[in-house]
């Protein structure tokens, strides 16, 4: 069984807001203000893939159909870092789809490129993507990819079990969770829960991953007439980005004792008609 995990590189979403700056020309976050990391839900997706592989191994010992995990990313050469991260967590292979020299990417184009790569990797049984990227929160690439491939797809999945020719996926609903059975091959977009918190790599694996050679696939290798990707793509244009202003002043409740603070907080809330 082959599982493809799609990863993308983003500006560290946990960087302090006080250091956040914009680049008005690029209409994006300024370069160099923070680390570049694997988008958080993509890390959850890789974790889910690793767990699927472990469960199959536990169940069958040495299975006749071993699980192979392939990490894919579309991006500039620097995006290779996310692939090395995936290898350090023991993905079996990692491939960079290089966008160097091409216009900026957007969801539908990324999905077309990923779909072409998945077809090239045939046979693939399962493709995992994060539910949304941690920078633009588009929430679309996984679903676009499923449409492009014409596969079953389930969104907001936190856990996957293999059952015969199907996958049992635990998906988030507005009320809790649902177990959904999906036919193979399938695409799932991954959300977080307590079972898929990304593990940490071992030092030795990180060192091995740093030295691994990464195959690079180019866009013309994957799609015919790549320029039409940009011409035909339906999209909205970015006019500008701005940092929303907040002018709140917090009233800190003081007091000699914690009881006093509690009394004063409740008083302040009553004054504001909150209680």
């Amino acid at each position: 069984m082959r599982i493809v995990v799609c990863l993308t590189q983003i500006l560290d979403p946990e960087m302090p807001p006080s250091e956040f700056r914009l680049d008005p020309q690029r209409k994006a976050a300024a370069e160099g203000i923070g680390q570049l990391v694997v988008s958080i839900f993509d890390e959850n997706a890789l974790e889910v893939a690793l767990q699927v592989r472990e469960h199959i191994l536990e169940r069958k010992g040495a299975p006749s159909d071993p699980v192979e995990i392939v990490a894919l990313t579309v991006g500039p050469p620097s995006a290779a870092d996310v692939l090395r991260k995936a290898l350090s967590l023991r993905a079996d292979r990692a491939i960079l789809i290089s966008s160097e020299g091409w216009p900026p990417l957007e969801g539908a184009i990324v999905a077309r490129l990923l779909a072409a790569a998945v077809r090239r990797l045939h046979p693939v049984d399962l493709v995992l993507c994060g539910r949304e990227t941690g920078d633009w929160h588009g929430g679309q690439v996984g679903s676009f990819l499923a449409e492009e491939l014409g596969w079953a797809s389930v969104s907001f999945v936190s856990r996957i079990e293999v059952e015969g020719e199907t996958f049992l996926m635990r998906r988030q609903s507005d009320e809790g969770w649902e177990i959904v059975r999906a036919r193979r091959p399938a695409v799932a977009t991954i959300t977080n829960d307590e079972t898929n918190v990304p593990r940490l790599p071992k030092v030795r694996d990180t060192m091995l991953a740093a030295r691994a050679s990464l195959p690079v696939w180019t866009i013309p290798e994957l799609v015919e007439d790549p320029h039409t990707l940009w011409e035909t793509s339906a999209r909205v244009a970015v006019r500008e980005l701005f940092i929303p202003s907040s002018s709140k002043v917090c009233e800190l409740i003081e007091g000699e004792t914690v009881q006093e603070k509690a009394v004063r907080l409740l008083e302040a809330l009553r004054r504001r008609r909150m209680l």
Binding site: L11, D135, H137, V236, I243, P244
Partner: peptide, 14 residues
């Protein structure tokens, strides 16, 4: 729409 986890807002034109 908010982007970068709400650190910025993007204005888009369709």
């Amino acid at each position: 729409k908010p982007v970068y986890g709400g650190k910025a807002h993007a204005v888009l034109v369709a």
